[in-house]
Write a protein that binds this DNA or RNA. Structure first.
Length: 888
DNA sequence: AGCCTCCCCTAA
DNA sequence: TAAGTTAGGGGAGGCT
């Protein structure tokens, strides 16, 4: 069998269980029983599984010490050191054939018996892949490494992949003819695929690090490289499987050593990331707080978390929860109340704006008004008799009569028992959560710096408590999938919150002394404009407002002065931006944006950066002409290609299999993903993976979906594509900024059209009659009709104008000088790469790192292209010997 | 051009 | 099988 794309991935999984690791460190001792053979703190020691390779010693790799192995693999020999291409720090097992390799793998796992297995991409690049391959060979891998192996595993033989995630017509033949027979129910369960990893090992926890990161940190892309940079502040190279395979199959020597070292680095990365984020301890803390098992914290929803706490408390009060069927849930009355979202008066505010918000508004409402399932007496005037939430209920008339003076009536017309008569379970739960959180925070402050471990645990605990308090409302309103929703109760919470906010707003608006005006509010927040006041005065008044509003509400409702904006823009509902001061002493304001392009991940860096910079300029000088100058400079840079492609990469989540079949086209990111899968079915993105793309030039009238390509395709040295600068400026940057600066009277379309055009010309019309693709590359890069030396206009066909051409020596000198400069640039960038996690070997072997997360990568490609273009032009004109560019 | 649907992402 | 909620803006593309 040949080495098709599919095999590349396999190769690496095979060699070092690629990106698959056995988690030993980080599990609290004794927390998970029976980690036999392992002690906490044992060094991580990767295992290297090698099949049928003849290993030879490598020069220069010395001082290797053999390490003894904890177990004795049945089928293969532990290789002697000195014969292993100089691989150190790991144990190497050599197997003569693939099946035996799996036997070793299974033996190692079973002898270590880990509680947790982690991998970067469990489904595609790690355990799931191994399992898939194993089943080809008739090995039930997941069953064999299970703690609860089943003997009768023949039942599920021969079942096919149950679902094709993409409609057949979108894929080429070879994607759907796959005859893989899955021996175990491994990959394709929809819920598992979309929420965890879809790979289950009995008795062990399988963690999909990629997906955990997605929930943990906010990034534009979740490649291992970008996560490593964000979490570990460590740059690591990205080497494609194709290159790794080439290195590895080059036989004993440096290249093979590099490839192995690289894969080992990837495997260790998972641990470093998990440790840095303290994932295991934090998840354990959540499990403890909620009273559920470890994996349920990660795999189950917040409904389950709330319920586990709620039910335990309910039982102590002698309550049982009702358990309505799905039909009952579906037929409960619709929710009627909406939170208050004011329509802001859009505009620029040069005066201070104070932002105040209620702390945990909904939990406060539940506590303050004793709102609970167990205290609800139903509607005052029921529209449908006896219906309450999902159940039938009508209050005992005698009880109503006895309580009639004390009954709490919420603004949506629902009655509740006062807490004197009966304290609700939800209020009790939330009170405990909030007071415990305060206790934990106090305890945290008392800790001395040396108690760092405790510090982290306490912090994790208080965050867990905050989290659970905030989703309790969601539990009562869980209409779609709810186990015990109650529309009236949820409505009461919303409406009490709304009334609380409305009262606060009208207090501020009608107060004589403050002379304040509420210009925006959303659910639990108030934006108060204080005309003509300073930031200091605004803090003063803000605190007065906060105490006055807090005082007029029942405990524990608290209005908190959050910050002062000075100045700010209010754009629309849920979109605003300003220079924020969090204390009166703060000198330098912080740039604080909500909902606009600078904080969104569906725009590219170019939009976010120009917008933030323009806003900063405007906030600082309040002079629109400065913004104009800045923007015109940026546009010129873009049009003349003096920008980094990194800022023009979009990355959006792709969910193959969820797109409506009716829609004629897929979203751009999905188009790019499908294109990649056509070349390599293993390139299928994980569910909700962020797939990068860029927009290129195309035929006039082309739709966007026809103009999107993988950034690497555009970066390729011989790429025929050109960045669609017009699209980025006209469809991305200008509309976004116009929405902001239009509010102060600017017309960015006008600014753009009156801007002097840069030197390059749009080349689209030439494209169709450029027969030789090799030629187009140079032409695309040197689109200019200007002389590359003097910049004067030259005849369309020449890159060097007549005047310059006459002086051959000067041209040669200029070309050589410029070439030398570019080569120095390349050396400089190579030096930077040498400090990257990859070390010298990346640089030695030429430019192979293709990390889209690394700005140096983009820079190198640009310089390379410049050099290539320059030398091609010069060679063509006869001024430059070809051999000087050969080393690329 | 206006309206609609789908899709993505964010605020709270 | 399990799945917290709603409100909201904005891009793209198709239809009338």
């Amino acid at each position: 069998m040949g080495f098709g794309p599919k095999w590349l991935g396999w190769m690496w999984s095979c060699i070092f269980s690629a990106k698959f690791s056995i988690l030993v460190n980080g599990v609290p001792a004794g927390f998970f029983p029976s980690s036999k053979g392992l002690r906490q703190g044992d060094p991580l020691s990767p295992y290297l599984f090698v099949m049928g390779m003849e290993f030879e010693p490598v020069e220069n790799i010395t001082d290797l010490k053999p390490e003894c192995c904890a177990c004795t693999p049945a089928s293969s020999s532990l290789s002697e050191f000195g014969k292993l291409d100089g691989i150190s720090g790991c144990k190497v097992l050599v197997s003569s054939e693939e099946k035996l390799l799996f036997d070793d793998f299974i033996n190692i796992i079973c002898s270590f018996d880990p509680d947790i297995l982690i991998g970067w991409d469990i489904q595609g690049g790690s355990l799931g892949f191994l399992a898939e391959r194993a089943s080809h060979l008739g090995i039930g891998l997941l069953n064999k490494i299970s703690r609860t192996p089943s003997e009768t595993k023949t039942a599920s033989r021969n079942f096919e992949i149950p679902e094709k995630r993409v409609a057949d017509e979108m894929l080429p033949e070879n994607l759907v003819d796959d005859s893989v027979l899955l021996e175990e129910a491994i990959i394709e369960d929809e819920w598992g695929r979309t929420h965890a990893s879809g790979v289950h090992v009995g008795g062990r926890i399988v963690l999909n690090v990629w997906r955990l990161m997605r929930g943990e940190i906010k990034l534009n892309m979740y490649t291992a490289e970008s996560v490593a940079e964000a979490v570990l502040r460590q740059k690591i190279p990205s080497i494609r499987n194709r290159v790794l395979t080439k290195w590895f199959s080059s036989g004993p020597g440096r290249a093979r050593y590099r490839s192995i070292e690289y894969v080992i680095q990837r495997a260790k990365l998972n641990f470093e990331i998990m440790n840095q984020l303290d994932m295991i301890n934090r998840t354990s803390e959540l499990a403890r707080v909620f009273g559920i098992d470890f994996f349920s914290v990660l795999s189950r929803g917040s409904q389950y978390h709330v319920e586990s706490m709620f039910l335990r408390l309910a039982h102590t009060q002698n309550f049982l929860a009702i358990s309505p069927g799905p039909q009952q849930v579906a037929t409960q009355p619709a929710m009627e109340c909406l939170p208050l979202v004011m329509e802001p008066e859009s505009g620029f505010y040069a005066d201070p704006v104070v932002v105040l918000d209620f702390q945990s508004l909904y939990p406060s409402m539940i506590i303050a008004y004793n709102l609970c399932y167990s205290t609800c007496l139903g509607k005052v005037a029921p529209s449908k008799a006896d219906v309450l939430g999902v159940s039938i209920y009508s209050p005992d008339p005698h009880a109503l009569h006895d309580l009639k003076d004390q009954i709490l009536l919420t603004p949506n017309g629902v009655m509740y028992v006062p807490s004197k008569a009966r304290k609700g379970v939800l209020p009790r739960l939330l009170e405990e959560i909030l007071s415990t959180r305060i206790m934990v925070k106090k305890a945290m402050k008392k800790l001395v710096p040396s108690q760092q471990v405790l510090q982290r645990i306490f912090n994790a605990r208080q965050l867990a408590l905050k989290l659970i308090a905030n989703v309790t409302y969601g539990y009562t309103a869980a209409g779609y999938s709810g186990r015990m929703p109650c529309a009236e109760l949820a409505d009461s919470i919303v409406q009490c919150g709304r009334r609380t906010l409305e009262n606060a707003i009208s207090l501020v608006n009608t107060h004589d002394k403050w002379k304040a005006k509420v210009i925006y509010g959303d659910t639990d927040s108030m934006f108060v404009l204080l005309k003509g006041r300073t930031v200091k005065e605004s803090f003063q008044i803000g605190h007065e407002i906060a105490s006055a509003v807090t005082a007029m509400n029942p405990n524990p409702v608290t209005l908190k002065m959050e910050k002062v904006y000075h100045p700010c823009f209010l754009l629309t509902k849920k979109r605003y931006v300003g220079y924020s001061y969090e204390s009166p002493d703060q000198i330098e304001p912080t740039f604080d944006a909500k909902g606009i392009e600078t904080v969104r991940r569906d725009t590219c860096g170019a939009v976010a950066k120009t917008m933030e910079q323009s806003l900063r300029l405007f906030f600082e000088h309040q002079d629109i002409s400065k913004v104009k100058v800045y923007l015109q400079r940026q546009w010129r840079r873009i049009l003349s290609g003096r920008v980094s492609l990194q800022d023009f990469v979009f990355a959006k989540e792709v969910r193959l299999g969820t797109y409506s079949s009716r829609a004629s086209s897929l979203p751009p990111a999905a188009i790019v993903a499908i294109k990649a899968m056509r070349a390599d079915p293993r390139a299928e993105p994980c569910y909700a993976e962020r797939v990068p793309y860029v927009v290129i030039h195309g035929e006039p009238g082309a739709r966007l979906v026809d103009l999107v390509v993988d950034p690497l395709d555009l970066l390729a040295i011989d790429s025929p594509y050109r960045l669609n600068d017009q699209y980025y400026i006209n469809k991305q940057i200008i509309p976004a900024l116009q929405r902001v600066f239009g509010l102060v009277g600017a017309d960015l379309y006008q600014w753009f059209s009156e801007m002097p055009r840069p030197v390059r010309e749009v080349y689209a019309k030439h494209k169709s009659h450029a027969p030789n693709p090799y030629r187009t590359r140079i032409d695309f890069y040197y689109l200019s009709k200007h002389c590359i030396l003097c910049g004067e206009l030259s005849p369309a066909s020449a890159h060097i104008c007549d005047k310059c051409s006459k002086d051959g020596t000067a041209v040669a000198a200029a070309v050589i000088g410029r070439t030398a400069k570019l080569e120095r640039d390349i050396q400089h960038l190579a030096a930077i790469c040498r400090h990257c996690g990859g070390g010298d070997w990346i640089v030695e072997s030429g430019v192979k790192c293709t990390s889209l997360a690394c700005s140096v990568f983009y820079e190198r490609r640009k310089v390379q292209k410049d050099l290539q273009g320059l030398s091609s032009v010069a060679t063509e004109a006869g001024f430059y010997p070809k051999c000087m560019v050969e080393w690329f």
